[in-house]
Amino acid sequence: MKIRIKYCGGCNSGYDRVKFVKLIAKAYKDMKGEDLSLAYFDAEDIAAGLMVCGCSVCCPDREDIKDGLYPWYVITNSSFNYFSMDEAEVIKKVVDAISKGERR
């Protein structure tokens, strides 16, 4: 499974975004039994996009970025698609969501 990662600019991040993405990749492997490949640019075989935001503003959530052939999910370490939740729940939501990711 390959997913696209789009980080925010990180101007005032409240947590380590890179470390958090690593946690997601590890959780994916643990739960699904396969590696999660991360792409930082658009590619043919991407199943889903993750906007990894450092704070609640989620500034990269713009239509010009989301204009891809796959679903996007906007996350921080305490929210999934703007719903507040704890870190473990965010990771679980992400793994569930990208597992269902299908190219449009």
Partner: peptide, 15 residues
């Protein structure tokens, strides 16, 4: 300016 979208779609200020 630092507001954000809520799950309901409207925008919330930076608390």
């Amino acid at each position: 300016a630092e507001g954000r979208k809520t799950p309901a779609g409207n925008y919330l200020i930076d608390i």
